[in-house]
Design a protein around this nucleic acid. Sequence first.
DNA 1: CATCTTGTTACGTT
DNA 2: AAACGTAACAAGAT
Length: 280
Amino acid sequence: MPELAEVEFFRKRWDSGLGRPILALKLHARKRLFRKVPVPELLRLLPGSRLSRSEARGKQLLFRFSKDLWLGIHLGMSGQLLAERPDFNPGKHDHLVLYQRDRALVFRDPRLFGLLRFAQSGSLPEWWAKLPLSASSKGFNRAAVRSFLQRHQRLPIKAALLLQAGFPGIGNWMADEILWRARMHPLMRCATLDAIAVTVLWKQVRWVSRAALRHIGHDFSDPPPGWLFHQRWHSAGRCPIHAVPLTRRTVAGRTTVWCPICQIQQSRRSRKGPVFPGKG
DNA sequence: CATCTTGTTACGTT
DNA sequence: AAACGTAACAAGAT
């Protein structure tokens, strides 16, 4: 489930426990989620520490605790964070539970594609410090997009949008939403984007990211009507502008949906017409 | 029962 | 060396 906006929503759920100590914890240590975690240290150090801060970069989460402790969480395909009652009894898919006096902070992941990390360090852990800033952030600038696309000239633009090193936080549905608004065919090679197209793409990445944060990231509500989002899940989906059936095909190994009228394949196309502004 | 999936990574090839 | 395509990971939904 989680892309940047869902990740942000889950981060805020755990923020209900900020400033409060961890009294106890329960975990399923043998699951592959813990393959990068020094489990004995986690069990020894975390109880008694206080949750002090949290941060997201793309789809990655970092929770800081007192005693220089850091917990990193990647939610994978099916992970989520919950705040439950303090007497919460973990189920089969609840792999990590942090108990506080007034709540239990739960990490749940049925499909086990997530990943946990843990470190004790006076500065940011090295596995966090090297992560790029979110596509919604100010640090995500046009020059970075341009050079990233230049390094992936032969890749279809849809595949490039899914690479977290270049577009941190963008996932499958957001990539389709961005390409639809930028009026770009998902199979366009990165090399064929000219300077104007790079700017258009960059702006739509930022706009879709930030708009998704305002809706999904705020209260998990769907984006407003008019988004491709509402059409892409069902086979009868239609372009919100042209009402024509959407094209549906696997690109870069993922289901990809686009409008055969908005998103034309040739690189030489008129840019006179207004690019869909994305307001609303 | 077969096929699908809002994600990443290991691995082999170009 | 870097970029690229594909299989693999696991389990639930359709």
